[in-house]
């Protein structure tokens, strides 16, 4: 409710709700503290201004409200940490979805200033790549004729995902550091050249969402925007088929 008030964007991923939930609690916590302190603050500057209270009291507050306030802050923060933060983050990084089966594998490779999305295709395996082969027509430096690559497809600045299907996105970069961030999905991961970090989630709402580059990457950073399309299996297959025929004209294999 506070989140809504502050205008958080609607959630579209499975785990997103728990993130939202935690943010909500944080904001309540902060609000309570602020109001508490704020009232004390306002009362004292009203009550004890010179005109109303000409003689200061050397001892001031003698009871222990401060320690009470501080202790309660500590306790609540501890609860937030142990109760919510750790489990949540554990979930994000630890239990990845099953290696095989109903999971889609995509690579998001950033460059100045665009995202290349590399779909492993039905075999769930990516083509071999080599930085040496990179050029305008082969932005990912895919090794031609690599067997696992026969069914791979690549799309630029548009990532298509299947509704309800968990997706593992390996985020990496060719040149400088970018960052793969999708507010609606409550996910974010820096794209650091030389590393490949997986990130996963399950989209639960169909639609088009903006993918933000969340790390300054040069003059075009502000415009490095991509679209994530969450659609039905059928729609996705159509999209995949089209790309596949375009990118593997010789072998229209599925």
């Amino acid at each position: 409710m506070l989140n809504k008030l502050l205008g958080i964007v609607p959630n579209a991923s499975e785990h997103g709700l728990s993130v939202e939930h935690m943010l909500e609690i944080c904001h309540w916590f902060m609000l309570v503290l602020f109001v508490g302190w704020g009232t004390f603050f306002l009362v004292s500057i009203y009550k004890f201004r010179k005109s109303r209270h000409p003689k200061a009291d050397y001892h001031g507050v003698t009871n222990h409200i401060s320690s009470h306030a501080e202790v309660s802050v500590i306790l609540i923060e501890a609860v937030l940490l142990l109760g919510l933060a750790f489990p949540l983050w554990g979930k994000r990084v630890l239990d990845l979805p099953p290696e095989q089966g109903e999971v889609m594998r995509v690579r998001a490779i950033a460059e100045q200033y665009a995202w290349n999305f590399h779909y492993s295709g039905p075999d769930g395996k990516f083509a071999d790549q080599s930085a040496a082969l990179v050029n305008g027509s082969n932005p990912l430096g895919i090794v031609p004729g690599s067997p696992t690559g026969a069914d791979d497809v690549v799309s630029k600045n548009e990532l298509h995902l299947v509704l309800q299907k968990p997706v593992v996105i390996e985020v990496s970069s060719k040149d400088v550091i970018h960052s793969f961030s999708v507010p609606h999905m409550r996910v974010g991961q820096d794209a650091i050249p030389g590393t490949k970090v997986p990130l996963w989630f399950r989209p639960i709402r169909a639609g088009k969402y903006e993918i933000v580059c969340a790390q300054l990457c040069g003059g075009g950073h502000y415009a490095m925007r991509s679209i994530m399309v969450v659609e039905s299996q059928a729609e996705f297959d159509a999209f995949y088929k089209e790309l596949n025929e375009m990118q593997h004209p010789a072998s229209p294999k599925q």
Partner: peptide
């Protein structure tokens, strides 16, 4: 901050 805040109490500001 709390200490500063409480320091206001009882003062003649």
């Amino acid at each position: 901050l709390t200490s500063l805040l409480i320091s206001l109490w009882g003062g003649s500001i």
